[in-house]
Design a protein around this nucleic acid. Sequence first.
DNA 1: TTGACAGCCGAACGTTCGTTCGGTAGCTTT
DNA 2: AAAGCTACCGAACGAACGTTCGGCTGTCAA
Lengths: 200, 200
Amino acid sequence: MALNPQKATIDPAYLDKLQDYYAEHKVIPSYSVLATLWGVSAKSWVSECVKRFEEAGFLDWTPDRQLKPGKRFFERHVADSPVQAGMPSAAIAEGGDHVASIDEMVVRKPSATVLVRVKGDSMVDAGILEGDYLVVEKQPHGNPGQIVVAIVDNEFTVKYLDREKGTFVLKPANKAYPVIRPRGRLEIFGVMAGLVRRAR
Amino acid sequence: MALNPQKATIDPAYLDKLQDYYAEHKVIPSYSVLATLWGVSAKSWVSECVKRFEEAGFLDWTPDRQLKPGKRFFERHVADSPVQAGMPSAAIAEGGDHVASIDEMVVRKPSATVLVRVKGDSMVDAGILEGDYLVVEKQPHGNPGQIVVAIVDNEFTVKYLDREKGTFVLKPANKAYPVIRPRGRLEIFGVMAGLVRRAR
DNA sequence: TTGACAGCCGAACGTTCGTTCGGTAGCTTT
DNA sequence: AAAGCTACCGAACGAACGTTCGGCTGTCAA
């Protein structure tokens, strides 16, 4: 057990503060600012801690040797059971699930991905509410069963794509709305890749 | 017309390159790096351009006078109508809804934010489906009307928080489920800050 | 043809940066 | 009781930073 490769410990409180700072300013601060942020007074100590963050993958360097967020910097914790609810950190060990970032769980092809604000309640039964942001992967076709964003009468419409006797139709997820049977070609803007809602 | 308040012109190519750099590294580079990035050789010129970006709202300063992205830096279009579907950028004109990244629209305090996977269908009427990820800001209390994650019988439960005769109760958004009236203290894990769904 | 202006360069300069290194105080381990 | 380790401090230092300022070139209006 002496061969435990004992990683240098990193202080989760330091990471928290850095992440919150970054969330506010979108930049990694200088060592002296970091020092005051962390409540320490020695830049040399900051330097030491930064090295640990770097080894752990939370910080990294640009080719020009400027400090930048590392791969794990944007990791978000996925809580599964309340067991860990109270525990005040228990190290950054491999415990629990992580997710790279919300962005990445929902957008696969950034260049083809757009957000579309949902209007109306025609899809409530699919859990899509007015005001939600639909993450849409732009592409001119879709498969039956998928939720697609189509262009009807020069407006976006979010509907289930389905097939009826060889032609595509758009089905709402709300009994109060009718099925849309487009005459002519159905113009599909993209398919739903995900959904994001801001609370309240 | 001499009194046209003629804004100093900003070079969109410069902005593009800066944004690409930022997208890759998640930091604003130093003036000398900016110079090579832009293909100019005078830091003084970089300084001048930075001032213009600053006035235009694309760059800003931290309280410690470090350069950081400004409000308009992240302008990413939220498509509202199909009109803009095809257009490839069309200049830096004002207007339109913008959003930085999905992460940021939904998490304010990274250090207190967790993802909770939704189990069951007790909140379907609030558009919260099984398998969704609830973005939860950890805090031990909430206000009536908010959707909260509470700990009941050592399990997470997502419910509306409400008040009945002075005590807090948890209301599902699904008539098939009963209101939960906790005996003793109600243990709140956090409040819903947002929701993320991966399509299928 | 003169002058104003915009885009850009280059040197100089004081400030701040991050590193190095030698320290101290407290806790464990032996 | 000594030795070792960890968390942190503080001074020193060269390198890099961003600002200022003067200068050059090309364009456009008068």
